[in-house]
């Protein structure tokens, strides 16, 4: 394993947590559908995708713990951090809403993840490149699944079209954050570890536009994009997610089963 040496441990740890947190929170949101899916087949599909995402988070957290070198493991990152320590995208923590809202949230992130992990699979950090190569196969399937649903709901009945368009409109304020960069991203790019997120936007746009066109949906616009997730400023939803996710370890510290 060769870790890029021209970046400090703290920055790389932070970067890995940003990636892992988005995967875990989105995976947790999807897991909330388990047993509540619209049909059995879709219930299983969403649970499978949730497991893929949680699996990605585990790999990223474990590696983050190694890089950090302070003895923290995947469970420490998942169960022992408070809201402001979490670096996930705001889009990932938004509520499930109806099935259209869940699929829109998923599709927007899936399209991003495909571009992100394609790029990360060529990272100078070989461990991260390996995690990304594995994840890329998973998120490619996720995008296929959510994209096909967007097309079917958009080009479906009046009601399904209305619902999926509304979900798009509601979630569009969180899109710009996906491609936002800061000093940490600049250091990551300089070290050859990850892509310039802004550079992923054209491919994301063309994929999203292609699917929206086929789905007869209108691409929304927003004057008030929201951001802050990557630096720990979250919507009110994350606290509720964590109280659910972390309950057992908070109530019974160190509990194993």
């Amino acid at each position: 394993m060769t870790t890029a040496t021209d970046i400090d441990r703290k920055s790389l740890t932070e970067y890995l947590l940003r990636l892992g947190d988005t995967s875990l929170i989105l995976g947790h949101r999807l897991s909330e559908w388990c047993g509540h899916g619209p049909v059995l087949e879709e219930d299983i599909a969403m649970s499978n995708i949730a497991l893929d995402l949680i699996g990605q988070a585990r790999l990223l957290y474990t590696y983050a713990g190694t890089v950090e070198g302070e003895g923290r493991d995947e469970d420490d990152f998942a169960f022992k951090r408070d809201v402001t320590d979490w670096k996930n995208l705001l889009l990932a923590e938004q509520p499930n809403g109806d099935f259209a809202a869940t699929m829109v949230r998923q599709f927007l992130i899936d399209c991003f993840n495909v571009e992100l992990y394609t790029s990360l699979s060529k990272s100078t950090d070989t461990e991260l490149a390996a995690i990304a190569a594995k994840s890329l196969k998973e998120v490619t399937y996720h995008r296929r699944h959510s994209g096909e649903w967007i097309i079917r709901m958009g080009d479906g009945t009046d009601e399904s079209h209305r619902r999926v368009q509304r979900a798009l409109d509601d979630h569009w304020i969180f899109v710009d954050e996906l491609f936002e960069t800061d000093a940490l991203d600049a250091a990551i790019v300089a070290a050859g570890i990850g892509p310039d997120l802004k550079s992923l936007r054209p491919a994301w746009d063309s994929m999203v536009d292609r699917v929206l066109a086929e789905a007869t949906l209108t691409r929304p616009q927003t004057d008030f994009p929201r951001s802050g997730g990557r630096t720990g400023s979250h919507s009110e939803y994350l606290g509720f997610i964590l109280s659910d996710l972390q309950f057992m370890q908070r109530a019974y510290p160190g509990m194993e089963w």
Binding site: V39, L40, E41, E42, I44, A45, N48, Y141, R144, H145, E148, R152
Partner: peptide, 20 residues
């Protein structure tokens, strides 16, 4: 067997139900 809206979704559902 399973239920799906069309062939593409049937293949996806089959992937999730029968090849996990």
């Amino acid at each position: 067997s399973l239920r799906a809206v069309d062939a593409e979704m049937a293949i996806q559902n089959a992937r999730d139900v029968y090849t996990r």
